[in-house]
Design a protein around this nucleic acid. Structure first.
Length: 475
RNA sequence: GGCGGCAUAGCCAAGCGGGAAGGCAGAGGACUGCAAAUCCUUCAUCCUCGGUUCAAAUCCGAGUGCCGCCUCCA
């Protein structure tokens, strides 16, 4: 079985073959750090990190690079607003980025390069393009001349002659072609700047990704990813710069995720409907948000709504209950070591479901189907648990292993680790109250029993009376 | 004007030529002191109209309706 990925460059699914055997280089366009990131930003961060998890599951050695754009108009404006240096704004929001990434259980990249830490590399890169005749300078600005790069438009399938018709692009008289873009931008008064052969200024937006991906992954690397809005012009321009300079293919596979809407509207400042991950994490566990983001294929549009996220919350609850129930049985030493036919049946189902999971992920990261396998096994296991007789320990363990390796490991969904967080009442107090309630129940004093249960519920503990004893559960 | 995507049950979402996955919600039943959890049962003429085919949600054509990019944007 082999992994297939949809490559924007060819507009089809291709079998993934890395450039260097088992080594894989991935570059994901990261955030401009001038604000908390929102649920839409989170989608690429999350899905491409799932790609990384999956590649590692498949025994690839991945080098994952994602940048922080720490200098541009938005950062500068924010700094002025806040009365801070642009670098202080960037530092702040990089810290905030990691806090939110942790909430969503987004693992760390191997390198987080920042534009301002690569100014001299950027200058050298532009000089290289200059020597090859791809640039022209106009009073302090340096432009890339798209007419010199014959493949321009190959990613977005735009034809230079035809896109001109759109004519919505702002006309800059100094440009030879409206689609020429700036490599080096002259500093305006009061703006931060760096010295360069073309005067004081700062890098254009597209150049940093070309420079930093080359530095950490080489002139050619495997996967370049980002939101679909980046296809044109950002990624198109990256290809132009990088391939013009190196003469080699830049990234082999280009992956783009679909957009996320909120309550069927585009997220925008004017509509005031920007939903930050910071806010969402106050109301929902990270795994619930992950479930929501993985519930549609990454290239499809996805709509956020309260109803949707609540559905994800309930879905995760089903899985959490199963994991919890198994742990409870194991803790109670309530299992057998013999394998009966039912146990064997579940083991076989488990293996089949693993195959389905892998098959789904191999098919361009079909996370909705991968998620469905988690529920398929939950169904089978619950059926097994609700049948008569002792359950086999190894079988129960193999089910737990599945959720650990695939649900948690590959999809990044955490189960018990989140639900078992300490509540506002100690384990000892809970046990004490359970004991009192059991006495009441034996005396058929239902009133007292229900009162105790109610008291615990108010502290976030639900009591479930099972055939195997009372089971406390945190809400 | 150019490039591209989508339309499957109340909601979400797979499927890409031959059984309409899975989740959430709902209904009925079982278990339970009551609950909870769980189990069982139930819930779709796949936007419309043509065509190709022994066979189409799946392919082709037309239509309708949504959406994205082409401008900072994940």
């Amino acid at each position: 079985m082999s992994l297939k990925l949809y490559n924007t460059l060819s507009r089809r699914k291709e079998t993934f073959v890395p450039l260097n055997d088992k080594q894989v280089g991935i570059y994901v366009c990261g955030p401009t750090v001038y604000n908390f990131f929102h649920i839409g930003n989170a989608r690429p961060f999350l899905i491409f990190e799932v790609l990384r998890r999956y590649l590692e599951f498949k025994k690839y050695k991945v080098k994952y690079v994602t940048n922080f754009t720490d200098i541009d108009d938005k950062v500068i404006n924010k700094a002025n607003e806040m009365g801070l240096l642009f670098s202080e704004v960037a530092d702040k929001y990089i810290r905030e980025y990691f806090q939110d990434a942790d909430c969503l259980n987004i693992g760390r990249a191997d390198v987080y390069p920042r534009a301002t830490e690569h100014i001299s590399d950027i200058i050298k890169f532009i000089q290289g393009l200059e020597r090859k005749g791809y640039t022209y300078a106009v009073d302090g600005d340096v432009f890339f001349d798209v007419n010199q790069f014959k493949d321009y438009g190959k990613l977005s399938k735009q034809n230079l002659d035809e896109i001109k018709v759109g004519a919505r692009i702002e006309l800059d008289e100094r440009k030879r072609n409206p689609y020429d873009f700036v490599l080096w931008k002259k500093a305006k008064a009061g703006e931060p700047f760096w010295n360069s052969p073309w005067g004081e200024g700062r890098p254009g937006w597209h150049i940093e990704c070309s420079v930093m991906s080359e530095k950490y992954l080489g002139e050619s690397f495997d996967i370049h990813a980002g939101g679909s809005d980046l296809v044109f012009p950002h990624h198109e321009n990256e290809i132009a710069q990088s391939e013009a300079l190196s003469g080699k293919q830049f990234a082999k596979y280009w992956l783009h995720n679909g957009f996320l809407k909120i309550e069927n509207q585009k997220m925008s400042k004017s509509l005031g409907n920007i939903l930050t991950v910071r806010d969402l994490c106050k109301r929902y566990q990270g795994s619930v948000i992950r479930h929501f983001l993985l519930s549609a294929h990454y290239r499809s549009p996805l709509n956020y709504s309260i109803e949707q996220i609540e559905q994800s919350k309930n879905s995760m609850e089903t899985l959490n209950n199963l994991i919890y129930n198994i742990h409870f049985l194991l803790q109670q030493n309530d299992f057998s070591l013999e394998i009966d036919s039912e146990s064997e049946g579940l083991l076989l189902k488990n293996e089949e479901i693993i195959k389905n999971f892998i098959q789904a992920m191999d098919d361009d990261l079909n996370t909705p189907v991968a998620l469905s396998t988690l529920f398929l096994l939950a169904k089978e296991t619950n059926r097994y648990l609700s049948s008569k007789g002792l359950k086999n320990k190894d079988v129960l363990q193999s089910v737990l292993d599945f959720y650990d390796q695939y649900g948690d490991g590959v999809l990044g969904l955490k189960y018990l680790s989140e639900t078992q967080e300490q509540g506002q009442i100690s384990e000892k107090e809970i046990q004490e109250m359970i004991r009192k309630r059991e006495v009441a129940r034996e005396n058929k004093d239902w009133k007292t029993a229900d009162e105790i249960r109610q008291q615990l519920k108010e502290k976030g503990i639900i009591l479930e009376d099972t055939a195997k004893g009372v089971r406390p559960k945190k809400v």
